[in-house]
C-alpha cells in the first residue's frame, strides 16, 4: 500500500493534468468554431468552381485533346499519395486513422506492382509513415507556425504537385485527409485529384441549358482552371482537416478530463481509507499501551 504522502502527490498531479486537459478542450472548442467557419466560408468558391469545370469538362468528355489534368496520362503506373495530417498530436485517433487509410492504399498499390510516391503535409503523418515507407516519401510540407490555413498554403502544396506532374513524375494523384462530419465523427477520406474526377452537376436551371460564350477558348479556360481546381481541392481538404483535428482533440480531451476525474475519485477514496486505517492503528496502540499498565 502506497504511503499517505505518495497518494497525496498522485492526487495533486492528476488534478494538475486534469486542469491541462480541460484547458486544451476549451481551446480546441474555440478553434473548432473558427475552423468550421473557415470551412463554411470556403464552400461557395469550391462549389462554383466545380460547377464551371463540370460544364466545361462535359464538352471534353471522351475527347483525345482533353488536357492531361482531366484525361490523365493514359497510365496508372506511378501513384502519388498526398497525405494531409495535423502538426500536433493529442487529438485522439485523428492522425492515426488518416495514416492507416493511406497505409492500406500503399500496401494495395505495392501489391499490384505499382510505384508509390508520398508527399506528406503535416508533421505527424510524415513521422508515422517514415518508419515503414520512409524511402517512398519524396517531399514533405510542414505547416508548423501556420495559425489559420490560408489559400496560399494550399496553393504551395498544389504547386508542388503540379510541378511533379509537369515533369511526368506520376500518373495518378490521390489526396488523403479527414472529412469533418461532427465533433465525434471524422471520416478519413481518399480523394483522387489527378486525373480530375468530375462530379456530374445537376444544375440545368442555372447554367446547363444556356449556350455559353467563352473567352479565350474553352480549352484555354479549362487549362487555366484545372490547376486552380487542384489547389482549391487541397485547400478544402486542409480546412476540413483543421476542423476535424480540433473536433478530434476536443473529444479526446473531454475523455481525458473525465478519466482524470475518475482517477481522482479513486485515489481520494484510497487516501481516505489509508488515513483512517492509520488513525485506527494509532488508537489501538495507545489503548493497548494504557491497558498494559
Amino acid at each position: 500500500m502506497a504511503s499517505l504522502k505518495e497518494l497525496k502527490n498522485r492526487i495533486a498531479s492528476v488534478k494538475a493534468t486534469q486542469k491541462i486537459t480541460k484547458a486544451m478542450q476549451m481551446v480546441a472548442a474555440a478553434k473548432l468554431r473558427r475552423a468550421q467557419d473557415a470551412a463554411e466560408a470556403a464552400r461557395p468558391y469550391a462549389t462554383r468552381m466545380a460547377e464551371v469545370i463540370g460544364n466545361l469538362a462535359t464538352g471534353f468528355a471522351g475527347r483525345d485533346d482533353a488536357p492531361a489534368l482531366l484525361g490523365g496520362t493514359g497510365k496508372s503506373q506511378v501513384h502519388l499519395l498526398v497525405v494531409a495530417t495535423a502538426e500536433r498530436g493529442l487529438c485522439g485517433g485523428f492522425n492515426a486513422s488518416i495514416v492507416r487509410l493511406a497505409r492500406e492504399h500503399i500496401r494495395k498499390l505495392l501489391a499490384e506492382g505499382k510505384t508509390v510516391k508520398i508527399l506528406t503535409v503535416g508533421k505527424k503523418g510524415a513521422d508515422s509513415l517514415r518508419r515503414d515507407y520512409g524511402n517512398l516519401i519524396i517531399d514533405r510540407v510542414e505547416l508548423r507556425g501556420v495559425k489559420s490555413i490560408g489559400f496560399d498554403n494550399a496553393a504551395d502544396v498544389a504547386a508542388k504537385v503540379m510541378a511533379l506532374f509537369a515533369k511526368g513524375e506520376f500518373d495518378v494523384c490521390t489526396l488523403f485527409y479527414s472529412r469533418f462530419r461532427s465533433v465525434i465523427a471524422q471520416i478519413p477520406t481518399a480523394k483522387q485529384l489527378i486525373p480530375a474526377k468530375i462530379e456530374a452537376t445537376a444544375t440545368p436551371a442555372t447554367s446547363g441549358t444556356a449556350l455559353y460564350d467563352y473567352e479565350p477558348g474553352e480549352a484555354e479556360i479549362l487549362e487555366d482552371l484545372l490547376p486552380r481546381a487542384v489547389a482549391v481541392q487541397v485547400f478544402t481538404a486542409l480546412l476540413e482537416n483543421a476542423a476535424s483535428e480540433q473536433g478530434a482533440r476536443m473529444s479526446a480531451m473531454d475523455n481525458a478530463t473525465r478519466n482524470a476525474g475518475d482517477m481522482i475519485n479513486r485515489l481520494s477514496l484510497e487516501y481516505n481509507r489509508s488515513r483512517q486505517a492509520q488513525i485506527t492503528k494509532e488508537l489501538i496502540e495507545i489503548i493497548s499501551g494504557a491497558e498494559a499498565l
Binding site: 466545361l56 473567352e215 487555366d224
Partner: peptide, 19 residues
C-alpha cells in the same frame, strides 16, 4: 479586366465565361 481585354457586364448579358 478580362484576359483578352476589359469588358463590362450589364443586366441581361449573354451567358459568357472569361478568364
Amino acid at each position: 479586366p478580362g484576359t483578352e481585354g476589359d469588358f463590362g457586364v450589364l443586366a441581361g448579358h449573354a451567358p459568357f465565361v472569361a478568364t
